[in-house]
Design a protein around this nucleic acid. Structure first.
Length: 545
DNA sequence: TTGTCATACACTGTGTGAGA
DNA sequence: TCTCACACAGTGTATGACAA
C-alpha cells in the first residue's frame, strides 16, 4: 500500500492539474486514479481485513469493470483519455517516449485511431483537412494540432456540418430591437475606441465593446508585451517620425573613414588638374603623348559598415530579427581618359565633371548589380526598360471604384486609348501600365506585391472584360434590373461568379471525359486537386481549353 | 439598415533548395 | 531519389468603416 506521503503528493498533483487546465487531462485522470485507488484500497483492507495483494486484485477488477462500462457509453472520451494518459505516464515515469511514440495511436471522431508520429506531412494535412482544421504551419505544428485535437473531444462537435456559430460578438450592444431600450448615441468605431482605451481617454459611461471571437488570437500577456515594447521604443526614439542623424559614436567612428575618402578624391582631382593645366600651357605634354593616368588609389574604396551597426535596436522575442545582407563591395572601374585633352580651363572642368558623373553612375550601377537582380520590361511603345528594385517607388494607393473607364485607359500600354499621364507609377520617367505591375513588384522579396496583388487581380478581371468589347457593351452587360450601371463591387462579384461557374463546368467536363483517369491527371504530389480554378488553369496549360 | 469598398487573412497550388 | 520546408502567387472570404 502507498504511504500517506504519496497520497498527499497525488492530491497536490490533482489540484495542480485542475488549476492548469485543459492540456493536462491525463495528469488529472492519473491523479484521480491514484487517489481513488489509495482510498479504496485502504477502505477494503480495513473493512474486510484482506491481505494487500488480494485487495489490489479486487480493486483492479472493479476498475476494469468501470472502464469497460464507460467505454460503452463514452467511448471517444475514454479513448482520448487513455491516449493522453499513456503519454503523460511515460513522461511522469521518465520512460523514453521517442521509442514508443511512433506506435502511439490517437483517437479521433468516428472511433478512428491514427499513429500520428508515423504520418508524413501530406498525411497529416489530409487528416487535418478531413477534420476541418487549419492546414498552415510546419510539420511539428500540424502534429501538435492533431494531438491537441485528439485530446479534446469537446472540440469534435465543432466540426459537425451545419453547425452555426458567430464569427464575432454583437456589434451593436444598444440595439433597441434586442434590448428593448432606447437607442443610445452611436458607438465609437473599434479603432477609435481602442485608441481612446490605450490613450486613457475612454469615457466611463461608454459601453465596452465585447468581442466574442476575433481574428486576433494573441493572449492578453502578448498584447501587453507589444504595448510595453512600443512604449519603450517611443521613449527611446522620441524623434522616430523625423529622419535622424547617425548617433554620435557612430558619426565619430565614420568620420576618419569619410575624411580619408574625401582626401583621396581631392588628391586625384588636384593631380589631374595640375597635369592638365601643365599640358594646356604647353609645358611638357603633347597630344600624342601617353594619356594621363591618376596615381593609384592609396587605399581601396571600402563599403560602409553594415547597416546593423546603426540599427541595433532590441526587439521583443516575438518580433523576428531581420538578417541584413552583407555590405556590398563597391567595384570601381579603372579610371581612363581616352578623349583628347581640352584646351581651356572651363572645358577641362566640364570634362572632369562629366567623367566623375559617369564614374559615379558606374559605381551606383555596379553596386546595384551586386545586390539586386536587374529586371527588364518591354513597354507598349517598344521601349526596353531596364531597372532595379530600388528604382521602383512603392505601389501607389489606387481606386477605380468610381472610374472604371480610367482603369481602361491605364491598364494596357499597347492599346490606343492608353493614357501615360494618368499612370500613377513611373520608372525612370516611363509611365508603367497597370498590367505590368506583377513584373515590376513580384519576386522583389520586399513584400510590396503582397499588399497589392489582391486589388490588382480585381482590376485585371474588370479591365480585361472592359477591353473585350466596347465600353458601351461593357456597361450594357453590367446593368442592374433597374437599368442602372452596376457598382464596382457588384461587377467584381458577378465576374467572380461567372468564372467560378465556368471553372466548375470545365472540371465537370474533364471528369466526364477522363473518368477514373481524372484524379491521376489532376493531382499534386499524389493528392487530388481540390480547387476548380486550379484545375481549370491546368486544363488551360495543357492546351485543352 | 443596407450596400459598397478597402483591407487583412486563410487557404491552395507551385517551384525550388536542402538534407536524409 | 525522396521528403520536407519555405516562399510566393493566386483566389476567396470575413471584417470594419463609411455613406446613402
Amino acid at each position: 500500500m502507498r504511504s500517506p506521503l504519496v497520497t498527499i503528493i497525488s492530491l497536490s498533483g490533482l489540484i495542480r492539474s485542475a488549476k492548469f487546465g485543459s492540456d493536462t487531462v491525463a495528469a488529472y485522470g492519473l491523479a484521480v486514479i491514484v487517489v481513488a485507488s489509495d482510498a479504496a484500497l485502504a477502505l477494503v483492507q480495513l473493512s474486510l481485513g484482506l491481505p494487500a495483494y488480494a485487495c489490489t486484485l479486487f480493486i483492479g477488477l472493479v476498475v476494469g469493470i468501470i472502464i469497460a462500462n464507460l467505454a460503452g457509453n463514452y467511448r471517444h472520451q475514454v479513448l482520448a483519455f487513455l491516449g493522453t494518459l499513456k503519454h503523460s505516464m511515460a513522461t511522469v515515469l521518465t520512460i523514453p517516449v521517442d521509442k514508443k511514440e511512433k506506435e502511439e495511436e490517437f483517437p479521433f471522431p468516428g472511433g478512428a485511431l491514427y499513429k500520428l508520429h508515423k504520418m508524413n506531412l501530406t498525411e497529416l494535412k489530409d487528416l487535418l483537412r478531413n477534420l476541418k482544421q487549419p492546414l498552415s504551419g510546419s510539420k511539428p505544428v500540424l502534429l501538435q494540432r492533431l494531438v491537441d485535437f485528439s485530446s479534446n473531444p469537446s472540440a469534435w462537435n465543432l466540426i459537425v456540418a451545419g453547425r452555426r456559430q458567430p464569427h464575432k460578438g454583437p456589434r451593436d450592444v444598444t440595439n433597441k430591437a434586442r434590448t428593448g431600450e432606447e437607442k443610445k448615441p452611436r458607438k465609437k468605431s473599434q479603432v477609435a475606441a481602442r485608441r481612446d482605451e490605450l490613450m486613457g481617454e475612454r469615457s466611463p459611461a461608454e459601453p465596452v465593446q465585447v468581442i466574442q471571437r476575433s481574428k486576433d488570437t494573441r493572449t492578453e500577456q502578448q498584447k501587453n508585451e507589444v504595448i510595453a515594447w512600443a512604449k519603450r521604443f517611443v521613449a527611446n526614439n522620441p524623434d522616430i517620425q523625423t529622419p535622424r542623424q547617425p548617433k554620435e559614436f557612430n558619426a565619430t567612428k565614420m568620420k576618419p573613414e569619410l575624411d580619408s575618402r574625401l582626401a583621396n578624391i581631392e588628391g586625384q582631382l588636384q593631380v589631374l588638374l595640375a597635369t592638365v593645366k601643365a599640358s594646356s600651357n604647353g609645358d611638357a605634354m603633347s597630344v600624342d603623348s601617353e594619356p594621363v593616368m591618376p596615381p593609384p588609389l592609396p587605399t581601396p574604396l571600402r563599403a560602409l559598415p553594415p547597416l546593423s551597426t546603426y540599427t541595433n535596436i532590441s526587439l521583443p522575442s516575438f518580433i523576428p530579427n531581420i538578417a541584413l545582407p552583407p555590405p556590398p563591395l563597391i567595384s570601381v572601374p579603372p579610371f581612363t581618359m581616352n578623349s583628347p585633352l581640352p584646351a581651356s580651363d572651363s572645358m577641362i572642368t566640364e570634362s572632369i565633371t562629366e567623367s566623375i558623373n559617369m564614374t559615379t553612375e558606374s559605381i551606383t550601377e555596379s553596386a546595384k548589380t551586386a545586390t539586386e537582380s536587374r529586371k527588364v520590361l518591354v513597354l507598349g511603345n517598344g521601349t526596353r526598360l531596364e531597372f532595379f528594385n530600388s528604382d521602383v517607388p512603392c505601389p501607389p494607393s489606387l481606386s477605380f471604384a468610381k472610374d472604371i473607364p480610367k482603369l481602361g485607359r491605364v491598364w494596357d500600354d499597347a492599346r490606343p486609348e492608353f493614357s501615360p499621364s494618368e499612370c500613377s507609377l513611373k520608372i525612370k520617367g516611363n509611365a508603367i501600365a497597370l498590367k505590368h505591375w506583377p513584373v515590376v513588384y513580384s519576386y522583389s522579396h520586399d513584400q510590396r506585391w503582397r499588399g497589392t496583388k489582391g486589388a490588382w487581380d480585381t482590376w485585371k478581371w474588370i479591365a480585361e472584360r472592359y477591353h473585350q468589347s466596347t465600353p458601351e457593351n461593357f456597361w450594357e452587360e453590367f446593368r442592374d434590373e433597374h437599368g442602372h450601371t452596376m457598382s464596382f463591387t457588384a461587377i467584381t462579384r458577378m465576374l467572380r461568379k461567372q468564372r467560378t461557374e465556368a471553372d466548375q463546368r470545365l472540371v465537370q467536363q474533364q471528369q466526364e471525359q477522363l473518368g477514373l483517369e481524372f484524379s491521376q491527371q489532376y493531382n499534386v504530389r499524389g493528392r487530388a486537386m481540390v480547387r476548380a480554378s486550379a484545375i481549370a488553369k491546368r486544363v488551360g496549360k495543357n492546351g485543352q481549353l
